[in-house]
Design a protein around this nucleic acid. Structure first.
Lengths: 217, 217
DNA sequence: GAATTTCCGTGACCAAAATCACAAAAGGAT
DNA sequence: ATCCTTTTGTGATTTTGGTCACGGAAATTC
């Protein structure tokens, strides 16, 4: 079973109070950020966006809490509002990171989501994290509902695939130092927010190697 | 400019003769193979499939002929009917392969296709190859035409992304020998059809290393 | 079928990265 | 402030994979 805590359903006409006094404003801001992000892929009209938002649940995770544990598959996708999420696989007892998701990105594990096989991978909060959770079930319902959501899904996938191809070719083709430079130039936010230890496996390097590369600069 | 030779438009009611006497049969077979492949992602009705087929052009490439040259972007996608296609990027004057496409797969370079920036990569026929070519323009028209095509696109992208994630994590996380074993167990057709030289860069290894790994087994 | 190109195997050597070990630094919790 | 955990830096050593060089096999061309 997936983690389920702090699920709070809400729509555009629902007031949702966070723990602080600015709850309403914060909620409105998150809503707006989500909409702006979606708009970059496919513009939804007010009704459609409302439908989307209505099936999103706000969730909070503390550091080292799992969004998805290997073995599960019915998890859906997470729109990260704050914090950071890592995707890793346990190999020889070591956490090998394959992706990271920061603010305004969709954390996901696509294989189990689309094929319904138990995931071999884990989604883990690497710091205290908040997110909108869209369950697989609700996602599929949206796809049935309108072509706008299909298009949104397609465009989002195109974007994700482009990013995956990029990091993939970096690891396939570049030397360790060049891989580090790639991060520095193209994904500086990862260098700021994600511990070196995790970034090393992401780049296909030993932690010590990455540390030394950074030292001699 | 993209390569354009042997373009032959045809629909379900058009007779298309290949050079041999079995042209009609061969054509019908290719048509069926395409339909079966598409059906695995999203089932199209007869009208829709006909629309799809009508905008496909049959093309033939000899070994070492380019389907897409770096610098271009208006190429579309290719459904490989026979032969093999490699996706590579020139790095330090060396062809670094990032993907291979065999029979019944869609050869593509997604970045330039979706963002309209000149491609840094190349699609190259690694053996004599035949394919259906769907241009970017016609692909976009299909997407506009019906939600069935949107869904087809989405599902195809999900499939491609799952494959990309897999090879990506193999190169990020596994040692050279394990990478070879991955190919042997999961992509045996690549080992059969693609020269070791090209596979080496795909696995992030030197050619000699891959040759030695194979030797000691 | 001879010639040319492409592809693969292999030895010797070297450079680079992994591993091991430990300590220092930074960050969180109480 | 103190303790504990997490994260990072760094030296010493080992291992491995890269590079260079060459020859042979296999495939393609003419």
């Amino acid at each position: 079973m997936d983690c389920d805590h702090n699920h709070k359903s809400f729509g555009s006409n629902t007031i949702f109070l966070l723990e602080n006094l600015n709850g309403k404003e914060l909620y409105a801001e998150n809503e707006m950020i989500l909409r702006n992000t979606l708009d970059k892929f496919n513009v939804l009209n007010d009704t459609e966006f409302s439908e989307f938002l209505n099936v999103c649940k706000y969730e909070a995770f503390s550091k080292r809490e799992f969004l998805l544990k290997s073995g599960n598959y019915n998890h859906g996708i997470y729109f990260v509002l704050s914090g950071s999420v890592g995707l890793f696989e346990l190999i020889d007892g070591k956490e090998m990171y394959q992706n990271f998701f920061l603010k305004n990105e969709f954390a996901h594990e696509l294989k189990s989501l689309t094929t319904q096989v138990p995931s071999t991978k884990n989604l883990l909060a690497l710091s205290d994290t908040t997110a909108f959770h869209l369950s697989r079930k609700e996602l599929l319902k949206l796809y049935e509902k309108s072509a706008s959501f299909e298009r949104l899904g397609r465009k989002l996938l195109e974007h994700i695939l482009n990013g995956q191809n990029e990091i993939s070719s970096v690891v396939q083709s570049l030397k360790p130092e060049e891989r580090y430079l790639y991060l520095e130039n193209n994904r500086p936010n990862l260098l700021n927010t994600i511990p070196l230890t995790y970034l090393a496996s992401y780049l296909g390097l030993a932690r010590e190697t990455l540390s030394r590369i950074r030292a001699r600069k």
